[in-house]
Design a binder for these strands. Sequence first.
RNA 1: GCCGGUGUGGCGGAACUGGCAGACGCAGCGGAUUCAAAAUCCGCCGCCCCCUAAAGGCUUGCAGGUUCGAUUCCUGUCACCGGCACCA
Length: 977
Amino acid sequence: MSVQHTQEANELQHRYSAAYANALEERWQASLAWPDGKGYGFRQPNPGEPGFDASKPKFYCLDMFPYPSGAGLHVGHPEGYTATDILCRYKRLKGFNVLHPMGWDAFGLPAEQYAIQTGVHPEVTTKKAIDNFRRQLRRFGFMYDWSREFATIDPDYYKWTQWIWLQAYSSWFDPSVKKARPIAELEAKLARENAAIPVDGGATKPTMKNWSACTKREQQAHLDTFRLAYLGTQTVNWCPKLGTVLANEEVIDGRSERGGFPVLRMPLKQWMFRITAYADRLLEDLAFVDWPDMTRTLQTEWIGRSEGAEIRFAIDGGAADALTVFTTRPDTIFGATYMVVAPEHALVAQAIARDPSNTKLAEYVVWAKNRSDIDRQASKEKTGCATGLFAINPATGARIPVWTADYVLMGYGTGAIMAVPAHDERDFEFAKAFHLAIQQVVEIAGTPFTGEAATAGEGRAVNSANPSTLSIDGLATAEAKQSVIAWLEKQGIGTRRVNYRLRDWLFSRQRYWGEPFPIVYDADGNHYPISPSQLPLVLPPLADYSPIESDTPQPPLAKAREWTHTTAGAAGVDPALLAPNTPVVRETNTMPGWAGSCWYYLRYCSPKDGSHFVSPEAERYWMLSRKKSAAAAGAPTAYDPATCHTGGVDLYVGGSEHAVLHCLYARFWHKILFDLGHVSTPEPFGKLFHQGMITSYAFQRADKSLVPTDQVTEVSEGEFVETATGQKVTQIVAKMSKSLKNVINPDDVIADYGADTFRLYEMYMGPLEASKPWNTRDIVGVFRFLQRAWRLAVDEKTGELLLAANTDEKIEKLLHRTIHKVADDIEKLSFNTAIAAMIEFVNAATRPQSLTDPTQGGLTRDQLARFATILWPFAPHVADEIGAKLGISGTTHEGMRVSLANQPWPAVDPSKLVDDEVEMPVQIQGKIKARLMVPAKADAAAIEALALAHADVVAAIAGRAVKKVVVVPGRMVNIVV
RNA sequence: GCCGGUGUGGCGGAACUGGCAGACGCAGCGGAUUCAAAAUCCGCCGCCCCCUAAAGGCUUGCAGGUUCGAUUCCUGUCACCGGCACCA
């Protein structure tokens, strides 16, 4: 028995088994090492470099680079990476210069937290993780240009991250031209005009002084308020015990989620980015990028533009400063029966100062300020306290109370509102809770105002007339808004105003494992930039990176005292700014994880450039689209919205979890660089695509609690029980998670089937953009396909090619169709249907009855070469193996031996795509009654005649009168009786 | 609550611009081969009625509508998933 078994196995030495697949894949991957030993994989030269072919069009395809975690690749990574690999290999065959780079987003929190726990330096764990990720990606056979690889933690890279930050630090946003300009230009302008500037910033009524009369320090302080990267004050959740700032999600009931330590909300001076200055452009340019609608909608909502008016309300008796509010509904001003300011609003402090006996107010403010955003969101019950102040409604002349309440947020608008309880749900609830007046001022057709609830929406103004001010009664909301704004502007108490939900970007982190800011402070706390020529500012090695316990934030870098305490000269500050021997202290905050990923796509264009963040020629070649550079006759032009063409990366593929923040931040940096003339396109990513999430099966008890997969037994088809209890559980789809024990390790799958099968499986699961459940049971389907394809080409006993002598016309036609469909589907990123087409082709070529001559079978040498070529993007190793057996070989510029990589995509003969005769169904009343073979070129009249003459049709009509015949040539015939 | 997306066989999914619903794969069933098994190959495989077959009926979450014809367009509705969430 076992003898025979062994004998047979010996006979089939060239069967495409998992072991065979693994062996041939590893052989092909080993052959990607350059003969000179200096590199690995396919290198794409830049313009001007040896081997560059200027006659080819370019294609820049970008994957979102991974954060190299200790856990290794997740099955979600190779999903997007396989998709881009297929597309890039296809583009290579189609004759493109293809830029497909890979790198590592390597600064970040997990490595630092792991370091705090284990004492192993983050650099050590991160580099180890990178090595593992690189090994895994190479094992998939992805055609990356590894010569362009870098990590964001490389000083050669973050040197330029710091440089870009300095660019923002040294720039301001000029609203008159809506773009960034060097701050030196602003300085020159202020000096030229000898402009009056405020010199005691922050005060409500600043003192103004002419530029020439100001000290250098006063001038600098004024310029500092314009910088795109500026020092601003932000309220943060500070946990003294943990020594760090916490995200809102990490604070529960005023205590840290981890450890339960008290958390203080305190204002902290942090580096900020003035992203709000770019709100309009970030919004407008979304119209010109080829992005998923969902993503554009998300960004639009995130920016949250709203139009309205700013209105100034005087405080009764001048007891405090006038109160300015923002409203989108100035037309409802007659219904403003009270005012609300945020607890942090300056007016509240004035009210407390005015009446210190009002302890209730002071207590409320303290309580509200310490309440975390999470708590505030969890309980939307209205709380608040009267300030004792009254405002005058300018429209009605009424004296209305000013309250403070935490439902009004300091961070939006002016931190103050006019409350119109009749027409705003929140104001209505508050008015009910505190027994405040409610006055209807809008009549909405179909929703009468009953006093039981607020009526939101547009309608006609009512109760909105005052002989001594204005009347808008009867006006529709849109006109009423215009009238009120016009009146406000005439009175000088209000103006049209646009507001955004988007806030400025907090860019400081009290962390060790990030890019240091190239900034130092003098003894007075004034900041000075390090000269760009002195970069990189290298992150100092620390032995102890645990957080510092303190009442005031102390980032871990503060521990590096020798590093932090230095002199201006040693730090590299321009001597013109500060004398070299001045003692200075370095900034100890670091940049957030986003920093490195904001511009990595640019660095890939020329990763080794030592004198530029990206070399200009490379940037123009890879980032400017062909169409656009052709239109500009070789010269890069300014952005032209009329062409709806933004240039940028030709295709960017990654998860939708980065649809808002990463993609918004990168656009923002890119626009600064564009304004300053460092890049030639207004947008970084011309086309964006999100692959769907790969989920997994999980099991749920009747009470909806989840059971780890390893504690479940399948008792029969689709029936599962919890092993320990025998209780029935239902199979559901959930995210892969360690706790559910349903995480798939790509290494295991490759060992079981090979990388080619893994690649095919993930692409065959369904549409790339859809979220799909991993089902190990299904993998065998595509594995069998590769086995059949292999068997079609190769004798499993001898390893010799199996070739047909003559071309079978039916197979030849099908091959043309398959080549055509696969190309079409790859361009549409519809890989599942492309694979289905190849499966159909192999099945047909395998089955004698699908051949014109059943004694023949198999493919000719030429047909097999073409089939292997279209399979190559999907399953490159097995395709190359067949290619090599066919004697197809070549070398790359580096002398690396390749097979199909140098082939052209096979040509399609259009005449082979059409049939002479087509079958058409004939329907009567929409039901199919007959099938008709008609010549493909037959016109509607001829088809109608043939259909009506068909015996089955005549029988089905049964003598009834034909009322109408609809003929769609090549599709169907429908007869109405 | 608001915004967006998705609902098609036992399962993953296919179907062009409104034109044969269920390609392809998995699972299942039957057969060939084999001493036997694996592997491979061939056939069947949406549901109902029916001994079986023929014939027929039903079917793209549900209820309507437009149309000669709807998975596709429109209205309403339910379920699930994702995002935002007191943004004035």
